[in-house]
Simulated scan of single mutants.
Amino acid sequence: MNGSPGRPDDARVIADSLVRPDLFGELYHRHAAAIHRYAARRLGADAAEDITADTFLTAFRTRSRYDVTRSNAQPWLYGIAANLIGKQRRAEVRSLRALARTGHDPIADTWTDRVDSRVTAQAAQAALAGALAALSVGDRHVLLLVAWADLNYQEVAEALSIPVGTVRSRLNRARRKVRVALGGVDPRLVYDFPEMVRSG
């Protein structure tokens, strides 16, 4: 998707857009769907539209400060989205707490196809939502950027402008709290958390 043969990488698109702003649309074309999916998982479909639009507007306005040694702009975009989501932290926590009470998440149901594990996953969703709501915003950002945005430690560090060591410690702390909250249920059955069971 980024920098395939005959196509400039994200850094080149951003650099070129300083002279020709219309070229920035290519960055939106490449990454908007992923940013929207991530925002929808965090805040719901309605808010995701606004978060996605604001992410790319912010990126466009600040593109002159982009580090062009980083060919892939996706971590940068996720970082902007995470900051915007953080400003709506109350809405996210309220949604997670509602899920913790009811055990039903229509947002997650639209993104995952559960068949055999559906009953187990629904039972565990309430516990997971409660655990996510209880995490600090920094720990939640790290955990969800790894689990839902599929970023590696270095990319999360770039996205949030924190050291890799901080990413590791936040992720370990968040994983530990979530495992305790799930009481032994495999986290991969809930909310598509494949990374949570891998060792750090």
Results as ranks from 00 to 15, higher is better:
M1G: 15
G3L: 12
P8Y: 13
D10I: 03
R12H: 10
I14R: 01
I14C: 07
D16N: 14
V19T: 14
R20L: 08
L27M: 11
H29R: 13
H29L: 02
H31D: 12
H36K: 15
Y38C: 05
R41N: 10
R42D: 00
D46L: 08
D46Y: 08
A47K: 06
A47G: 01
A48N: 13
D50K: 08
T52R: 14
D54E: 07
L57W: 10
F60H: 10
R61S: 02
R61G: 00
V68S: 08
P75G: 00
P75C: 09
W76D: 00
W76V: 00
Y78S: 01
G79R: 12
I85C: 04
G86K: 08
R90K: 14
V93E: 13
R94I: 13
R97E: 07
R97S: 11
A98C: 13
A100N: 04
G103I: 05
H104S: 07
P106G: 02
W111H: 07
T112S: 11
A121F: 14
A123K: 15
A124W: 05
L132D: 01
A134D: 01
L135S: 00
D139S: 01
R140D: 12
L144S: 11
L145S: 00
V146L: 06
N152K: 11
N152G: 10
N152Y: 03
E155M: 15
A159H: 04
A159W: 05
I162R: 11
V164M: 02
V167D: 02
R168V: 09
S169Q: 13
R170M: 10
L171Y: 15
R173N: 15
R173C: 03
A174G: 05
R176Q: 12
K177W: 04
R179G: 01
V185R: 03
D186Y: 04
P187E: 00
V190A: 05
Y191E: 05
E195H: 10
E195Q: 14
V197R: 06
R198P: 01
